[in-house]
Structures are given as structure tokens and as C-alpha cells.
Design a protein around this nucleic acid. Structure first.
Length: 444
RNA sequence: GUGGGCGUAGCUCAAUUGGUAGAGCUCUAGGUUGUGGUCCUAGCGGUUGCGGGUUCAAGUCCCGUCGCUCACCCCA
């Protein structure tokens, strides 16, 4: 009969440690729909961060950061009470002082709130700002959809010129390009303004009125609540019906028409390909005129970025009209897309040296030398908890540093340090007091 | 919120008709008394997400719950 090794040992172990039968611990985990960003994804997240800051500088956008918590009324007024976001996706609660607050579901309304609160129009006109941070929406989590997710956004506030619509679009496209995401479709449409939209709405309702019996349940609801979304349905029957439905492009007022035309001309001027999508309707009430999305061609589904013009938001949350346009990028979606398509970005870490300390007696001197190196702006790695030289070198190898500095009892006594070239294995002994210059000399 | 699938070691996955868990990788240590990447050996690591039920016996069947996932809704 074969003897199972592990089993035997397990038994033995059980006999030895019989009593420490612990109660099981609660095993905490992230709240539903929330996630941790782990070290393995550091490179991609940092790439987004670095590129975002680079783009912000090139396009002259300044940082703005608003609180994660805002009053619920801000979004009810800004995004619209009838929208899904406000109707069922808000993380809202009451504070001890009975204020109804909410974890922000998006970044635009808070920025507009800040613009009005601090009179930022006087800071510069137009005001160009970027923000980055977590947004919260109480939805059922799915791939590419979290309850807490990061957005990078750009807003240009105080200017209605189509130039800024086009610039916003171009900025987002170039952001993706810099990340190595080149295969994107720009979907673009206009949703008109207060003058032409009601007209169009009437036409749309008139068209669908006679066809109500052919509509799906969802669309019947849309018919009442948000007719523009009728065009967005995925049901075959409804899709068929929309083919003959009036499209807004044919019903724009003169100024919206001119605006759209100019945006498209500017976009073309930059050699950007776009796909007019008369069915693109965004879910937030504050949009007018230009709306757009960027979707990866080779990945089914969701937008990597989306945005548009929101000239009415200022009025909705502050009582006066402030023309503005913006875009936001879904950072998790970017990271996941890059992962899926094996787009690698390198971390921009400076080359480092691995400091090996052999034996306890060398610890004090090693500690001091490591500090000295870092003071001279050098990146120093270590794994001092590992006792053997072998294990420490192994760690150095894994970390991929070009050099290892080694300090043992002998070196301490002689006041020297060994510099080892990890690629060639060649070692040299140098004086400890010259450690900085000797190391720098060998670090390319 | 509605409906389907899944949940075994840190990771990727095994486990015959229900017979109380294995492999590879990783990690740690040793082979080398102060020298990494290869190789060899050993070790760490699981009351099979959690709770309950059926059964002599449950990773395997049933119910609940939590989580993930896919579609819808909607969106970044």
C-alpha cells in the first residue's frame, strides 16, 4: 500500500498542535462593486497618470479637485431627476446633521459647482481644468462597470466656440493614442438645443405614436419619459422602426446646424475620422449640441471615453447660462483594454541599485550608506529580512537592478563596499566613502 | 433592478457513477562556509466562498447567502 507523504505529515502535525483550534476570522473583502488597484497594475495606472498630466500641460489644462461628497441636490438639478443615474444609481445618505449627501456619480456637475462658487471665470476665460478621481454609481457590477471607478476628465468652461468642442475631442483621441490605443472609433452626434430639440421631439413622438403597439416594453416607457432614447433600443423590431424615424440632423435650428458643421470641419481638419451616429444620445440631461463617444474598434461594447457640450448645466445648478464642453475617460476601462490587448507600457522608474547586507554586524553601516545613497537621489532596493547572501542576490535578480552593492563584516572592517554588475557578474571593491560617485559612474 | 453561468492552495487548474483533496507556477529553505538568473530536493499553503439540509459518507446533490461573470437596463 502506497504511503501518502503529505497525509502522514499532516497527521503528525495535527497531533502536535492539537489545541490551537482557532475560530474563523471574518475575512473582510471589498464592498460589492469596489476593487483594489494592485501593484501588478502599477505600470498601466501610472502610464495613464503620466500621460494625463502630459496632455493637460500640452493643452493647458489646470488641476481642479472637488470633494467626493457633494449635496445630492447638485446632481438632481444638474444631471436631471429623470435620468437613471439620479433615479437609481446614487450612493446617497443622510449625515448626522440631516444633510442629504451623495458620493459623486460624475465629475462635471461638481466642477461647474466649483466654477460658480469660486467665480473661476475670473481666474481665466475660458477656464480649462482637468480632474481625476473616483466616481460612484450604484449599479450591478459587470465587466468594465464598477460601483467605484476612476475618471479622468477635461472641462472647458465659459466658451461656446465649436473650436473647443473639436479640441476636447482631439485631446481625448490623442490621450488614447499616447497610451497605445489607436484603433478607436469616434462616434459623434448633436442633440440640438432648446430651440430645435422640442421640435424634433414632437416629430419623433408623432412618428412613433402610430407604431406604439410594435414597441417593446422598455420603449413604451421611453416614449413617455425620454423619447430620444427610442432610437437607442437593441430590439430588432424597434431597430427596424427607427430606420424611417426622423433624425435630429434634419431638424436642427440654424445655429445648432452651423455649430455641428464647424465642429465636424475642425475634426476633419485634424485628419480625424469620425462616424456620425444619429442614434447616439447620452443619458445626462445637461448635454446640448455636440455629444461623442470613443469606442475601441476591436473590443465589443462600451465607450472608453465620452463627453459633449453642456451649455445649460450652469443654469441648472447656478442660475445662469455658462457655455462649456468636456470629456471624461474611464480609467478602469483603459487599463482593462490595455491588458486585454497586451499593450505594455514601461514604468518610468529610475534605474536602481540593490543593497545587500550580509550578517547583522553590517546592518548599522549598511543602514547609514543606504540613507546616504537615497539622499543623493538614488533609488535603493533592499531585502534585509532575508539572511543569506544568496537569497538577497536572488531578490536583486528578480528586481532587475543593474547593480548590487554588497556589504559584509569584512567590508565594514575595511570601510569598503563591493559593487557587483548583475549582468556580467563582475565585482569591484571600492571605498565606502566613495560609494556615491562610484555607483553613479557605473549606472550608465 | 430582471434573467443565465460560475466559486477547489497566492495564481492557473485536476479530482472516476457522492467514498472526507492533488498538480504546475509562485513563495521559503537547503544542495554551495559570503555570490543571483539553470538544475535537484524539501517545506509553507485548503474545515473545497460562507451557512444549513439530504446521506453511513458531500468538492460532487438540494436550499439560502455572499462574491464574480454574461445578457438586459444604463453608462466611463
Amino acid at each position: 500500500m502506497p504511503i501518502k507523504n503529505s497525509k502522514q505529515k499532516k497527521k503528525k502535525k495535527d497531533n502536535i498542535e492539537k489545541e490551537p483550534k482557532e475560530k474563523k476570522e471574518p475575512a473582510f473583502q471589498t464592498v460589492r462593486g469596489m476593487h483594489d488597484i494592485l501593484p501588478k497594475d502599477e505600470d498601466r495606472w501610472k502610464a495613464i497618470w503620466n500621460i494625463g498630466e502630459k496632455m493637460s500641460e500640452l493643452y493647458d489644462f489646470s488641476l481642479i479637485e472637488t470633494p467626493i461628497l457633494e449635496s445630492a441636490a447638485l446632481f438632481e438639478a444638474g444631471i436631471g431627476v429623470g435620468t437613471d443615474i439620479v433615479e437609481k444609481e446614487m450612493f446617497s445618505f443622510k449625515t448626522k446633521g440631516d444633510e442629504v449627501v451623495v458620493l459623486r456619480p460624475e465629475g462635471t456637475a461638481p466642477v461647474m459647482r466649483s466654477y460658480i462658487q469660486h467665480h473661476l471665470g475670473r481666474f481665466s476665460s475660458p477656464l480649462k481644468v482637468y480632474y481625476v478621481g473616483q466616481m460612484f454609481r450604484y449599479e450591478k457590477p459587470q465587466a468594465g462597470r464598477y460601483r467605484a471607478f476612476h475618471q479622468w476628465g477635461f472641462e472647458t468652461i465659459g466658451e461656446g466656440d465649436p473650436f473647443y468642442d473639436a479640441q476636447t475631442i482631439l485631446l481625448a483621441v490623442n490621450f488614447l493614442k499616447e497610451l497605445g490605443i489607436k484603433n478607436v472609433t469616434l462616434k459623434i452626434n448633436t442633440v440640438g438645443c432648446r430651440v430645435c430639440r422640442p421640435n424634433y421631439r414632437k416629430k419623433l413622438l408623432a412618428y412613433y405614436k402610430g407604431e406604439k403597439k410594435h414597441l417593446c416594453a422598455d420603449c413604451l416607457r421611453r416614449y413617455e419619459k425620454n423619447p430620444m432614447r427610442l432610437l437607442d433600443c437593441k430590439e430588432e423590431e424597434c431597430k427596424k422602426m427607427r430606420e424611417d424615424a426622423p433624425i435630429i440632423l434634419d431638424h436642427l435650428c440654424q445655429s445648432c446646424n452651423g455649430h455641428m458643421k464647424e465642429v465636424l470641419e475642425l475634426v476633419e481638419e485634424n485628419g480625424l475620422e469620425y462616424e456620425p451616429d444619429p442614434y447616439l444620445v447620452r443619458g445626462l440631461d445637461y448635454y446640448n449640441r455636440t455629444v461623442f463617444e470613443l469606442i475601441a474598434k476591436d473590443s465589443a461594447g462600451f465607450a472608453l471615453a465620452g463627453g459633449g457640450r453642456y451649455d445649460y448645466l450652469g443654469e441648472l445648478v447656478g442660475g445662469r447660462m455658462i457655455p462649456a464642453v468636456g470629456v471624461s475617460l474611464g480609467m478602469e476601462r483603459l487599463v482593462e483594454y490595455m491588458e486585454e490587448k497586451k499593450i505594455f507600457v514601461k514604468a518610468k522608474k529610475k534605474p536602481g541599485v540593490f543593497f545587500v547586507i550580509i550578517g547583522d554586524p553590517a546592518k548599522k553601516v549598511g543602514f547609514r550608506l543606504i540613507h546616504k545613497l537615497r539622499e543623493s537621489n538614488m533609488r535603493v532596493l533592499e531585502a534585509v529580512g532575508k539572511k543569506s547572501l544568496k537569497a538577497q542576490l536572488k531578490a536583486a535578480n528578480r528586481a532587475g537592478t543593474e547593480l548590487a552593492l554588497m556589504l559584509g563584516q569584512k567590508e565594514c572592517f575595511e570601510e569598503t563596499v563591493i559593487i557587483r554588475d548583475m549582468r556580467t557578474g563582475v565585482q569591484e571593491t571600492v571605498l565606502a566613502e566613495k560609494i556615491i560617485e562610484e555607483t553613479k559612474k557605473r549606472l550608465r
